[in-house]
Write a protein that binds this DNA or RNA. Sequence first.
DNA 1: AGCTGCCCCTGATAGCCTCTAACAAACCCT
DNA 2: AGGGTTTGTTAGAGGCTATCAGGGGCAGCT
Lengths: 212, 212
Amino acid sequence: MARTAGTETPRERYRAQVRAEVKERAWGQIAAAGASALSLNAIARQMGMSGPALYRYFGSRDELITELIRDAYRSLADAVRAADGDVASLAHALRAWALADPHRYFLLYGTPVPGYHAPDDITAIASEIMARLLDAFAALPGGDAETPFDAHLAEHREWADGHPAPPPALRRALAFWTRLHGALSLELAGHFAGMGFDPALLFAAELESLGD
Amino acid sequence: MARTAGTETPRERYRAQVRAEVKERAWGQIAAAGASALSLNAIARQMGMSGPALYRYFGSRDELITELIRDAYRSLADAVRAADGDVASLAHALRAWALADPHRYFLLYGTPVPGYHAPDDITAIASEIMARLLDAFAALPGGDAETPFDAHLAEHREWADGHPAPPPALRRALAFWTRLHGALSLELAGHFAGMGFDPALLFAAELESLGD
DNA sequence: AGCTGCCCCTGATAGCCTCTAACAAACCCT
DNA sequence: AGGGTTTGTTAGAGGCTATCAGGGGCAGCT
C-alpha cells in the first residue's frame, strides 16, 4: 500500500537522524577549523563508526559540503526573512548571521573551490535573498538620479528575475551586497585585527553610504 | 675568509634556483586549482625528484605558502607603486592585478586558514600598500565633511602608522579597500556569473562612489 | 513461521597526502 | 686529496578519500 505523505518507515527515520547528526558534527568541525579541515573519517570516529560507513549516507565529501552550503543558504535566507524588511534591519541581520559563525559565511562567500558549481536549487535560494533586498530598496522613496551604471543595469536586469524595482534600486541592492560583503569579509578574515578602529562602526558607515 | 656581500657560493646559487623553480611550479598549481590543491609531492614529481627532497628547501607546506603570500604581497605592492598615484589608477592597478591571477588574490584576501598568522614583514608590506592609498586620498582636495565615523577614526589612527592624512582621507582609503574588495572578490568568486551585467562597470561605479 | 531481500556496517585495499628518520652519494673548500 | 656539509634517496608512520567484498540483522512477504 502506498504510504501517506509524511509517514516514514523506521528505516527512513533512522537514516534521516544519522544524516542530521553527521551534518551537526560537520558544522562543529567547520566552526572550529574551517571547511578545508572537514574530514568524513573524523566524523565517523566521533560517532563510533568506521570510516566507509558514512558513505552510505553521503556519496562523497563534496556531496556533504554541498548539503552544508544548501543549509547555510537556507539559514541566511531565514535570517533575512525574519528581519524587519527595511534596509538597516537586513544589514544587521546579515552581520549578526555572519558573526555567529564566520566559517559558515566563508563557506558561502569565501574563496571558491576550483571545480565546484552550485546546483540550481542553491542559486534559487540565493536569488530569493536578493529578492528581499530588492523589496527593501524598491520600497525606499526618492533616489531617481540615474547614473550611467543605472542605465546599464536597466538593460541587464535578468538577475532581478522579473522584480519591478527601478534601476536605482537595482544598483543600491548590488551595492548593499558588495559593500557590506567587503567590510564583513575583511573583518571576519582578521584583516582589521590590530588596526584599532571598531569594525562595527565601519560597517555602520558603509550601511549609511547606501543612501547616496 | 669572509665572503663579500653579494658573492654566492655555487651551492647557494643552486639552492636559490631550486627554491625559485619550486615556487614557480607552486604558482602554476595555485593558478590551476587554488591554494588548497598545492602539493609538495606533486611539485617534486614534476621536477623529477622524490617527495621528501623538497623538505631540504622548504621546511613545510605552510612555510612554502607563507613565502608565496609574501611574494604575492610584494607583487601587489609593486603594481600599486607602479600606478600613477591618483585614486583611479590605483584602483585599476588593483583590478588588473587581481584579474591576472584570481587565486593569487584569494591567497591574500580570501578565506583565512584557521591557524595561520602572518609574520611581521608581511604585514609591513601590507601597510606600505595602505600608505600609498593614504597618499592618494590625502592629495585629494575638498571633502572636509566630518562624519561620526571620521571622528572615531581620528581617535584610532594607529593603523595609518603616522601618516598625516586627515580623517576623511582615512575613511576614504578604508572605503577604497572594502568597497573594491567587495566588488572584486564577488566577481572573482563567480558570484556574478550569469547575472548579466558587466562587473567592470560595477567596479567603475564603486570607484566613482569613493568621491562622496 | 519461515524465507527472502534489502540495508547497514566492517575490514581490507588502493592511492593520495605531509612529514621524519636513516643512509648514501655528490660536492665544495681547505 | 681528504673531510665536513649539503643534497638526494628509500622506508615508514599516520592522515585522508573512496571502493569493494562480505557478514549480520531487520522487514516485509508468502
